[in-house]
């Protein structure tokens, strides 16, 4: 059977990245909806047994390309595998993480196949499409939904004529869920040399440093986030103080990160981290769509803002109209007073 749904697996060491498992979960649902198979592609080194991490997510076929030269990741060998494999298999959909690797690899592959690629999708659905000009109707296309234009609008992108329909999705946007620990799937081991000519190994990785993450924003049960309204890097100190008291992590809006008030890895939103804490305290954040896309599933949202009409207030459970620098110290004071 052809025209299946493919997910590129990102592998660090011998571990499949969470973002890939999240995409397998989404890919499984799409494949069931489309009545096709879910296939995954593992490219790397020492991949024996990798299927144990992958098949439980409902993968029907796992393609394995195992060669010492394929790890660590470099662009052209991985691209070469996907381009040749996709020419043979003709997938209808290909999903990748919107990670550094996915954003390096996806466009190269889509360019070679002359297919479309939509970056940083926040939602993927199946639906029909009628071309406004030609009147031509298309059944069961992939709706690639993403905030656009700096996050001020939501666009639905379709790819009517070209295959595969390719999309990247940030880590944390989709939820990973094991389908069946005993899901039967086939493992196909390919001969790497048939897919990667020697001429593709042109870039040498001569040094590599992976640091342990300094914080766990994605998994934090409470997030205290600041926006451009915090005014400065020093303004964020107050948020760190509140976060320390509440055992929370500090997040930031894109505007605050762009202004240099907070580090890039603390950015919450479509082009940052997606969080679903039990409590999200938004301080001086106006609430662009691209920010809301990364936090609206928080269980309880408090917005502290001088503007009673800030867009973020629409998704908030509690709206505190006031100055952050006055409200937050009071929160700290009363938390200390009552938590004992």
């Amino acid at each position: 059977m052809m025209n299946n749904i493919f997910v590129y697996l990102e592998i660090e060491g011998r571990t499949v990245a969470d973002v890939s498992l999240e995409l397998l979960t989404k890919g499984r649902k799409l494949a069931t909806r489309q009545g096709c198979r879910l296939e995954a592609v593992a490219i790397g080194s020492q991949l024996d047994g990798i299927e144990a991490q992958v098949l439980p997510y409902g993968v029907d076929v796992l393609h394995v390309f195992d060669d010492p030269k394929l790890a660590p990741y470099t662009t052209q060998p991985h691209a070469s595998v996907l381009i040749r494999l996709f020419k043979e298999e003709k997938p209808q959909i290909c999903l990748m993480g919107a990670t550094v690797i996915g954003r390096d690899l996806g466009p190269r592959v889509s360019s070679a196949l002359k297919s479309g690629l939509t970056a940083d999708c926040t939602s993927l659905e199946i639906g029909d499409h009628a071309d406004g000009k030609t009147g031509k109707e298309y059944k069961d296309l992939l709706y690639q939904i993403r905030p656009a234009f700096g996050g001020n609008i939501i666009a639905t992108i379709v790819n009517p004529e070209h295959r595969p329909q390719m999309a990247t999705v940030r880590e944390g946007v989709m939820k990973k869920e094991i389908l069946d620990p005993k899901h039967p799937g086939t493992v196909v081991k390919h001969k790497v040399a048939d897919y990667v000519p020697d001429t593709e190994y042109v870039i040498k990785v001569i040094d590599r440093h992976i640091q342990k993450a300094k914080h766990n924003l994605k998994g934090a049960p409470i997030v205290v986030a600041g926006g451009y309204g915090m005014g400065s890097r020093e303004g964020f100190d107050l948020l760190f103080e509140l976060a320390h008291e509440l055992h929370a992590e500090v997040g930031a809006s894109r505007a605050a990160v762009d202004a240099g008030f907070a580090d890039h890895d603390r950015q919450v939103g479509q082009t940052g981290v997606t969080v679903r804490p039990k409590l999200y305290i938004a301080c001086g954040i106006s609430g662009q769509i691209q920010h809301l896309a990364g936090m609206q599933e928080s269980k309880i949202i408090i917005s502290i803002n001088t503007d009673p009409d800030a867009p973020i207030n629409a998704v908030a459970d509690y709206v505190v109209v006031g100055k952050v620098e006055e409200v937050v110290p009071k929160m700290i004071k009363y938390y200390k007073a009552h938590s004992k």
């Binding site: 939501i154 639905t156 379709v158 790819n159 629409a314």
Partner: peptide, 17 residues
């Protein structure tokens, strides 16, 4: 190959707050 199907200025369902 990619076409913009729709563009929305999304308004979130206002929660009771």
């Amino acid at each position: 190959p990619t076409k913009v199907k729709t563009v929305m200025n999304i308004s979130f369902q206002a929660k009771e707050n």
